[in-house]
Write a protein that binds this DNA or RNA. Structure first.
Lengths: 114, 114
DNA sequence: TTTAGTACCTTGTATTGCATAGTATATGAT
DNA sequence: ATCATATACTATGCAATACAAGGTACTAAA
């Protein structure tokens, strides 16, 4: 049952962080959801579809992303997402927010030497 | 309205992280809520009462914390929280979880140098 | 025709941080 | 004595988000 608590905490700690990672990944080039999931997995960040799709829709509705359809020779068409100018600005703020959080946590937990 | 989005993200990013910070703070000695809030503020981590009190109760119910009442000469009695043995073990796992997350985010966002 | 693989979408749930409001104790000013 | 202020703890309702589970649809190979 302790494992369950840690697993829950892992999910909680991802909140807000995933959107930062996704915008950052898209800042280096357009990508479609399955590709994004793959990139995240390479960074040992598990994101499932039920999380990613609503998140991408939200970011698009916020004007941070746009998308276009592109045919695939090996299945259904892919939805390629692209970072907008507003998205780029927001990414800059997210980066600052994340780094401030890391600095704060390091200080609060006494790991501010490095 | 962009400011509101960032403020929301800041709140989201705290999820799961606050319990780690609190357990860590208590690992260096017992403390009562107002004192914890003060310590967090020094690390530039804003935590309000409506967040902290339910959180402490939850951690106590999980067996990670215990508490004792102590009289104060300048107001109502204080509830001093203390980290239990189980809490100490859990803190170790939280520390690992947090560091893995930071490493993952650094990699996903391309800041894995250093 | 069926099976497998790829890709996208939707709904409901649980957790958690926050806003807001409230209760109670001790001290100091009127 | 009474009222205001500061300290300290508690309770309720809301909003946001990651996840589980299930579903639709297109392509290619058996």
């Amino acid at each position: 049952m302790k494992e369950k608590n840690i697993e829950n905490t892992k999910a909680q700690m991802k909140k807000g962080v995933l959107e930062y990672c996704i915008l950052s990944i898209l800042s280096s080039g357009d990508a479609y959801p399955t590709e994004i999931i793959e990139r995240m997995k390479q960074a040992r960040l598990v994101v499932v579809e039920g999380t990613l799709y609503p998140l991408l829709t939200r970011l698009k509705n916020m004007g941070l992303l746009s998308y276009r359809w592109e045919e695939s020779s090996s299945g259904p068409p892919r939805k390629y997402y692209r970072l907008t100018d507003i998205g780029e600005q927001f990414l800059t703020e997210l980066e600052k927010t994340w780094e401030e959080l890391v600095a704060s946590v390091n200080q609060a937990t006494g790991k501010n030497e490095k």
